[in-house]
């Protein structure tokens, strides 16, 4: 009986991997069976080999690391700038209404459309990539934080008020906490956007390292296993960041929705 239960648990654990296994199998079938031009689609084995050797012998690890650094730096800047602004905007409905359109407009503008502008302002160096990624992430964080503060349920604020809390303390002890679940939503989307922008920036605005640059280089010399390996690395990074956020959210907003 207990052995049966244990087996069940293992099956449950492995369930999410079934889809991945099927996908790899189809990929293998397609490349081995020559259903797709082998130049375009190397076998899973070749790509995996390129990934492992890139990490152990080549420069994949370095590019991976550069992308992580750019993403986290731009994300950190975004948080430092955007959270206080969001709280400020959200705590006054009049202020928020007056800037809502502008925030919404820039949030809807594709960040890639702003590359040239940021290149003009910051030059071709590191700053432009980080600035544009930070900008993209910051807008979505501002929006969500402000939204969270504005839509914080009023009753706890009233409870704090009736207990004699001054206005600033109502903000720091209640409103900001109340908005935290929504702020986290913004941060989670913010870091994804920062990663997307960093990768694209590495591809197109003069980079000598980073996953984006690695992918575009591999494409130019038709090193397909290398390209798939780099794409996989970028995917793993995105997934890892998302996972990290889920863990952080569980830790800091454990009370959310309760």
């Amino acid at each position: 009986m207990s052995a049966g239960l244990g087996k069940n648990r293992i099956v449950k654990r492995l369930q999410p991997l079934i889809g991945a296994a099927v996908l790899v199998f189809l990929w293998w079938l397609a490349s081995e069976g020559r259903l797709v031009d082998p130049v375009l689609l190397p076998t899973p084995g070749e790509s995996w080999h390129a990934f492992v050797s890139g990490l152990t012998e080549g420069t994949l690890w370095n590019d991976f690391w550069r992308t992580i650094v750019r993403t986290t730096v731009s994300f950190a800047i975004a948080i430092i700038v955007a959270v206080p602004i969001g709280v400020f905007l959200g705590s006054s409905e009049t202020v928020y209404r007056s800037v809502e359109f502008s925030v919404d407009f820039f949030r809807s503008t594709p960040a890639s459309a702003l590359f040239p502008l940021f290149l003009v302002i910051f030059g071709v160096g590191e700053e432009a990539k980080i600035a544009v990624a930070a900008f993209g992430a910051a807008l979505i964080i501002v929006f969500n934080t402000a939204y969270g503060v504005m839509n914080a349920r009023k009753q706890r604020q009233l409870a704090a008020k009736v207990m004699g809390a001054p206005r600033v303390r109502i903000l720091t002890d209640v409103t900001i906490w109340e908005s935290l679940p929504q702020t986290f939503v913004g941060m989670r989307s913010g870091i994804s956007i920062a990663l997307v922008i960093v990768i694209v920036a590495e591809m197109f605005i003069g980079s000598t390292d980073g996953l984006g640059q690695r992918i575009i280089n591999a494409q130019m010399i038709f090193d397909m296993p290398e390209m798939y390996a780099s794409i996989f690395a970028a995917g793993a990074l995105g997934y890892g960041l998302n996972l990290l956020f889920i863990i952080l959210e569980r830790r800091f907003v454990h009370w959310g929705g309760k």
Binding site: Q155, A159, A160, A165
Partner: peptide
């Protein structure tokens, strides 16, 4: 309040909820 769920502070432990107003 009638609606205790939206009156207590869910991010604080029960005892810290009780202590909260004393600081003022």
């Amino acid at each position: 309040f009638q609606n205790y769920r939206e009156a207590v502070f869910p991010w604080s432990r029960a005892i810290d909820n009780i202590r909260y107003p004393l600081q003022f």
